[in-house]
Amino acid sequence: MYFGFGIAQTGAMGGVILRTNHTYPLLEFVLFLGCFPCEQPIMHELSVTQSILNIALQHAEKANAKRVTDLHVVLGELSTMVDDSIQFYWDMIAKDTIAEGATLHFRRVPAELQCASCFKKYRPTDGEWICPHCGGVGAKIIAGEELFVEAIDIED
């Protein structure tokens, strides 16, 4: 089933690759195949990983770093980002930069909501966002949307 779908995608992707100018052979291969598990051509983690790299390189340059050894990334439970995917793209796009080979550390933040009616705090469970204390709706998110680079470790 997937195979047929993959062929259709590959046709479209092939056209795209001819038009773009990216310089990551392995990444090109991934773009070509699409993402096997989710049957989506590619995931948002690619853009996110590119942004992580840009942020790290910018700050490393400012500090005159020779090498970036570690990155500390905070991902909220509701951020819909998968750390394995970020790691996967990282290994490809950080190649030939001063952040090549850097270790990614992920800190996951669980989701926490605050009821808009009774102001009690609770965690959403199994897609259920209604307040378990009073049945209130439209809760405020207190934690879980985080998506930021907390720190980098560099060698200077």
């Binding site: 930021f148 680079v149 720190a151 200077d156």
Partner: peptide, 16 residues
């Protein structure tokens, strides 16, 4: 020498 640089920059800042 290794040193830690605190950043706290939202990853989607550039897009925002």
């Amino acid at each position: 020498m290794t040193q830690r640089i605190p950043i706290v920059e939202n990853i989607l800042n550039a897009n925002d």
